[in-house]
Design a protein around this nucleic acid. Sequence first.
RNA 1: GGGGACGUAGUUCAGUUGGUUAGAACGCUGCCCUGUCACGGCAGAGGCCGCGGGUUCGAGUCCCGUCGUCCCCGCCA
Length: 608
Amino acid sequence: MCGVLRASDAGKKAVLMGWVNRRRDHGNLLFIDLRDRTGVTQIVFNTERDRTVHEKAETLRNEYVIAAVGTVKLRDANTINPNMPTGEVELVADELRVLNESKLPPFLPSDTALTNEETRLKYRYIDLRRDAMQFNIETRHKVAKAIRDYLSSQGFFEIETPFMTRSTPEGARDYLVPSRVQPGTFYALPQSPQMFKQILMISGFDRYFQIVRCFRDEDLRADRQPEFTQIDLEMTYPQPESVWAVVEGFLTAAFAAAGFEIETPFPRMDYDEAIRLYGIDKPDLRLPPFTDVRDCLSSENLSDLAINPNLPVIAIRIPKVGELSRKERDDIKPMFHSKGGARVYEDFKRIANRYAEAAEKISKKTNMAEGDLIVLVAGSAQASSGEKETAFAPHRKVTPQELAIYTSAGLLRLALAQKYAEQHQCFQKGDFRFLWVTNFPMFEWDEGEKQWMAAHHPFTSPHEQDMKLLEEGVESLHDPLSPLSAVRALAYDVVLNGTELGSGSIRIHRQDVQSRIFRALGMTEEEAKARFGFFLEALEYGTPPHGGIALGLDRIVMILAGAESLREVIPFPKTARAVDLMVDAPTPVSEKQLRELGIVVRKPVGQL
RNA sequence: GGGGACGUAGUUCAGUUGGUUAGAACGCUGCCCUGUCACGGCAGAGGCCGCGGGUUCGAGUCCCGUCGUCCCCGCCA
């Protein structure tokens, strides 16, 4: 193939097939760079050698598909190209066959400037010919294979579960598939094979995995596609630690397959600690954590700055940003999205001028060095009255008011980190900071619904020690002070450089506990039966303790490939409006198809 | 659902305060060239300035709407 010939092949006959990557015409001497998946080799056509073949070669254009037969020749010392692996040799052509011509493509795979994404996606087959895309897709293959091999070696079976399954309208929206045989009914594409894999544990398969497509009908992001691939696994009789060991094992194999060595075991951090130190449940450990500098400010300072003294005062430190201009400092403000009365103090210099003593303490406590950027985030004194926050959720370590401050600061920290990535140099390729985030809360307060909701999913087992709180809380679903707030889940996330790679838990294996959770979530027994009856029934037939996890394959490959978007590692992705620009999907369907399915499409309002 | 950025030649971009015939590079076409490798030289073709409306003597430029792509918030059990 085009990338394999070396000096040791000199003198051999060879046939190369591929695409014309570049043509350099010197009159009687013509060079063609021929490209395939493996690389590029230079082919030489010379009138001295064969006039007719050279003549034919002159008709070649970019992206023509050709076969060239010739002799591998060692290049003269002065014509060696050290920039390419095949640069010591070239193929001297004796024969040329044009296997196919090509229209002039809208862009060339060999172009140095990257074409806009719309055009790339429309002509994805051309885009995928580019080196970078070939590399990404190859990495994806290698990673998936390494994971399959590793899990197989650990006694896991890869077992398929249905794509056409039952809608369980909770959490993300389902993609629906209408049934023709049973008009008016719908299958749903799985958001995850969650219940199937648990039933496989009940079925005696002990260790299951699947590299499986999942579907969620929600708005897209750079790291979120409506269909995505998960490394899904489940095992019986696990401690969280045994699941983590499996994950660390296959990630080590996967990263090795991509040429990176990683350290295990990964560090672990409580959810509460993650919030307090990073303001987010998926901390990026490559940058310094927050410092609470409340005690560095005197009570006069606090009231002077209109800061709520009962809430943390967060110092965000971004290293090595250097002196900021007035304009750059002003630009920080719009990057701040305030939650729950949080305020930003972006001008640390001004604080230093006015409160020298406090600033001294702050820079000491944050380990501030020359050129580091310090931004403060604190609660606004006016915004909260103070009584509510002390009364709220006595069990919880982090109150909602504190959470608002931490979260606002966490978002700002990330925005600043991204903006000043050039300066702080903390985002270097190959720096992988993994983390297990553990002890998530079992329930989250939904302000809209005024009730507690499952934070992970309703099959997650609560902590053994928190069962009592759960029992006490069952009847106080709508009370923000419910003991439910303090129930911890046996759930864990694996995080890499601020990206959530995967999420898992030890599951509930007892039917009575499962029913109690459904009840705690406000589901009546009938509702639970109607939705999950088959599952509750299965739980009653000797269900072993079990647990597992699912990791996003796309995200892993994205990070390994150093890509900014999932679209770079998915061969045929969707745009932000969930459209496939190449095949132009989705589309309306014919009246006949709809009739067969018993479906009437209502025109959107204002479009008749 | 909300906020922001962008849309000019096949591609990447420039286009001044609203003022003559909208430019460059790469790519493309033709000719020349025997050691290039992002080859080089000469000549040439190529534009609904996303689309629709408005302001104006005059709009790529200002205003309104609309479509598309990207990013973020909400959402993602």
